[in-house]
Amino acid sequence: MKVRVLRDIFSQGKRFHEALESILSPQENLKERDEKHLQCGYIESIQHILKDISGVLALESAVHHETLKYTGLLDCVAEYQGKLCVIDWKTSEKPKPFLRNTYDNPLQIVAYMGAINHDANYSFQVQCGLIVVAYKDGSPAHPHFMDAELCSQYWVKWLLRLEEYTEKKKNQNIQKPD
């Protein structure tokens, strides 16, 4: 039962991200976009936020931080209310009105920012983040904007987490028998 629930959640999240990619893609006709995706509760949930999104620079894009040796696949880089942000789209059954309700998602945002800012494949720098929590029932999504100062604080936490992980992995490799 648990595996099925997880599979359903993953499938819903995947469909939500596919719909978002279609919506935010510059090739999509705006009228077709709205008609095609409005029936989805998650998309309905984020309508008020989409009005503040412009200047999409990256969608579902791989990033790599060569120095710190990690990679990721970010959802979106675009302007939110005029500020360039790494945007992470999340779905939730429960309301998450505060940033603290998103648990480790801010660390994910700053990890993507660090990677994109050190990846030669990208010609821009990002200083802000946005976590958008969308709801299946269509109720208004919660946007959690992270300014440059807040991102700097989370970057320190991310580096500590990465160091712990690297140390743990190194210790596991030492303990493995030949």
Rank of each mutant, 00 (worst) to 15 (best):
M1V: 05
V3Y: 13
R4V: 08
D8M: 13
F10T: 05
Q12T: 02
G13V: 09
G13K: 05
K14N: 09
K14P: 02
R15A: 09
H17C: 11
E18M: 14
E21D: 13
I23P: 00
S25V: 04
P26D: 14
L30R: 15
L30G: 03
E32V: 09
E32W: 11
D34L: 12
E35H: 14
K36N: 10
G41D: 04
S45A: 04
S45E: 06
I46N: 00
Q47F: 12
I49Y: 01
D52W: 07
D52Y: 11
L57F: 03
L59E: 00
E60L: 04
A62R: 15
V63I: 13
V63G: 15
H64C: 07
E66Q: 14
T71S: 14
G72W: 03
L74M: 15
D75T: 10
C76N: 06
G82F: 06
L84W: 12
C85S: 10
W89S: 01
S92K: 03
S92Y: 11
E93W: 12
K96Y: 02
P97F: 08
P97Y: 07
F98T: 03
F98V: 01
F98I: 01
L99N: 01
N101W: 05
N101S: 14
N101C: 14
T102E: 11
T102R: 02
Y103P: 00
Y103W: 07
D104F: 12
D104W: 04
L107W: 03
L107D: 04
V110E: 05
Y112E: 05
A115P: 11
H118K: 09
D119E: 08
A120W: 07
N121G: 14
N121L: 03
L130H: 06
L130E: 09
A134M: 11
Y135A: 00
P140N: 07
P140H: 06
P143K: 02
A148H: 10
A148F: 03
E149V: 14
S152D: 14
Y154A: 02
V156T: 12
W158I: 00
L162C: 02
E163Q: 09
E164T: 05
E164W: 09
Y165T: 08
T166G: 00
T166K: 15
K169W: 04
K169N: 04
K170Y: 09
Q172R: 13
I174V: 11
I174P: 01
Q175I: 08
Q175H: 07
K176C: 03
K176E: 08
